[in-house]
Amino acid sequence: MYLYLNGEIIEEKQARISPFDHGFLYGMGLFETFRVYDGHPFLLDDHLVRLQDGLADLKIKKSLNRAQVLEIVKDLLLSNGLQQAYVRFNVSAGNGEVGLPSTDYENPSVIVFMKELPSIIVEKQAIFLQTRRNTPEGEYRLKSHHFLNNIYAKREVGKNPSVEGIFLSADGFLAEGITSNLFWVVGEELFTPTLETGILNGVTRNFVIQIAKSIGLRVQEGYFLPEEILKSDEAFITNSIQEIVPLAKIETLNLLGKEGPVTKRLQSVYTKYRTSLWSKNELAKEIQHGPKQIE
């Protein structure tokens, strides 16, 4: 594997970071994961907006734009002989004194690597986790290096990739999956937990909400108890690598899974635009100039 480290494309075995990097010492770092389809980094602009917002919040001075990131991605695709890829884009705080800082980080490290896409999982089953979702360290949840809560949850679920764990908040409300956002369908209404529960503001989550509204679904974000999802017809989870994954079962409740009509409609639109869009905000324009109705 070839990766990008602070301006250079190098072999994996050459990669080095300092033990005094605060991303290592204190978890002061952020990352984005996204997919490349036929050379196109899907929704890259949305990922960069979230990344830049997080960097500002952590006082890590680094400005990244589409052109810069696209050049890195293209170089890595060429070096690794890939056209479809899983990409992880990391920005770490960089070296600092031992001790908790109060000033800005002026020299962050950028590490980017990619790999072949994992096998597609057509549908999953889910359980409610005993591990509760921790509260964000700040005002909202960052996509940061702090992943211990997720690791505890994954250990609870086990190795089976076809089983997803559903976090509940400390107050007992539905939150999100271990590395995914959560949705369910009742009739022609789509439900998802509010960001106020402390969940990640997922890029794919926002795109799916945009799709749903474009095809006439009513979307409700709010505080929901576990029994409410157990009244659903369909449910699915989302993230940028797995896309939209139907749930065939939650606890003992059997669902429509991959045969769910609403889930299939959302998947159809998602697939149609994943080789062209840079941001969810482009969707309405694309639909307006495309077919009048999405089947």
Results as ranks from 00 to 15, higher is better:
Lys154Arg: 15
His145Phe: 15
Gly138Glu: 01
Phe224Ser: 02
Val208Ala: 07
Ile111Arg: 07
Ser18Pro: 03
Thr135Gln: 14
Leu70Trp: 11
Tyr86Val: 00
Lys213Gly: 08
Met114Ile: 09
Gly39Pro: 14
Ser63Glu: 13
Val73Thr: 09
Asn201Phe: 02
Gln52Thr: 11
Ile209His: 04
Lys272Thr: 08
Gly27Asp: 09
Glu12Lys: 13
His40Gln: 08
Glu139Asp: 12
Ser102Asn: 11
Glu196Arg: 14
Leu44His: 08
Ser102Met: 05
Asp233Thr: 09
Glu221Val: 03
Ile60Pro: 02
Arg88Ile: 05
Glu234Asp: 10
Ile244Thr: 04
Arg132Phe: 03
Pro261Glu: 12
Ala248Trp: 09
Thr131Cys: 07
Gly202Lys: 10
Gly99Trp: 02
Asp233Tyr: 10
Asn6Met: 09
Val208Cys: 11
Arg265Leu: 15
Lys62Leu: 11
Gly198Ala: 07
Phe207Gly: 10
Ile294Glu: 15
Glu156Lys: 08
Ile287Gly: 08
Asp45Leu: 14
Glu221His: 01
Ser162Trp: 00
Leu266Ser: 05
Asn107Ser: 12
Ile111Asn: 08
Asn95Met: 10
Phe128Asp: 06
Leu255Met: 14
Ala284Glu: 15
Val269Pro: 02
Val36Ile: 15
Asn254Asp: 13
Ser63Lys: 15
Leu78Trp: 10
Gln52Glu: 15
Lys285Asn: 11
Ile229Phe: 06
Phe113Gln: 12
Phe34Ala: 07
Leu70Glu: 14
Glu189Thr: 14
Tyr270Val: 03
Ser63Asn: 13
Glu196Leu: 11
Ser279Ile: 00
Pro291His: 12
Asp57Lys: 14
Ile287His: 11
Phe113Leu: 12
Ser180Thr: 13
Phe31Ala: 05
Val262Pro: 03
Leu51Tyr: 05
Gln267Arg: 14
Val91Arg: 09
Val185Met: 12
Ser214Thr: 09
Phe128Ser: 04
Ala175Pro: 06
His146Pro: 04
Leu256Cys: 06
Gly138Tyr: 12
Asn206Leu: 09
Met114His: 08
Val122Ala: 10
Gly39Thr: 04
